[in-house]
Computed example of a mutant assay.
Amino acid sequence: MTLQEYLETKLGEMASQDPNFRERYEDKKKSMKDCLLYVTQQARKQAIRGCAAISDEDVLQMAVHYYQEKDVEPTKETAQAKVVAAAPKDNKPKTAVLIPKPQPKKKAKKVDNSLQLDLFGEF
């Protein structure tokens, strides 16, 4: 189950049970794409050294917050991240993990020692 499928399922259930939330969930100014972007950005703020592990409940709360507040919008950033949702298990706590995109390694600069004199050897 992907993160989008998880959120669509849970938010759909909430909308069917709560008419006030249904009205906000069906708002044309809000979209699942922007919701996922908002959740990813909030997770990135909690990351330590580029990694964050956030429970499904916290992710759901972020998504609900996105739909409930009129002035909550994600920023339009282009940073790459991979979101992995945990596989469903027997009523155990679930987690979503944000895995940063690996950065290319920089090459070390070569030092030119051709003009340096050797104190213990001969010229």
Rank of each mutant, 00 (worst) to 15 (best):
Q17R: 12
M14H: 10
L7K: 04
R24I: 08
K29T: 12
K30G: 01
L11F: 03
K29L: 08
E26P: 00
N20L: 10
A15M: 02
D18V: 04
R22G: 03
Q17F: 03
Y25F: 15
Q17H: 06
E13R: 14
S16D: 10
M32N: 06
L11H: 01
R24G: 07
Q17S: 11
K30N: 07
R22L: 14
A15R: 07
M1C: 07
Q17D: 11
K29N: 13
K28Y: 09
M32E: 03
Q4A: 10
E26H: 09
M32I: 13
Y25K: 08
K10N: 08
P19C: 07
S16F: 04
K10L: 09
Q17C: 05
M1F: 06
K10P: 00
M1A: 12
E26K: 10
L11T: 01
A15E: 07
K28S: 14
Q4L: 08
Y25R: 02
Y25M: 07
T2F: 06
N20A: 11
L11E: 04
F21G: 01
Q17V: 02
R24S: 14
M32G: 00
S16V: 03
Q4I: 07
F21W: 02
L7W: 02
S31G: 12
Q4P: 00
K28H: 11
D27L: 04
L7Y: 01
R24K: 15
T2L: 07
G12V: 01
E23R: 15
R24T: 08
N20W: 00
N20Y: 08
E23S: 15
K29E: 14
K30D: 04
L11K: 02
N20K: 09
L11Q: 01
K30H: 10
Q4G: 09
F21S: 06
K10S: 10
M1V: 11
K28E: 15
A15L: 13
E13W: 08
Q4E: 13
F21D: 06
G12E: 00
E26F: 06
L3Q: 09
T9C: 11
M1L: 11
S16H: 06
K28G: 09
N20M: 07
S31V: 06
K30F: 03
E13T: 12
E5R: 13
M1E: 12
E5S: 14
M14A: 15
E5C: 08
F21H: 04
L7V: 02
S31A: 06
M32A: 11
K29Y: 07
S31P: 07
F21E: 04
E23A: 15
K30P: 03
T9A: 14
L3I: 09
S31D: 07
E13C: 08
K10C: 09
E8S: 12
E26G: 06
A15N: 09
M14K: 15
E13Y: 09
M14I: 15
N20R: 08
D27C: 08
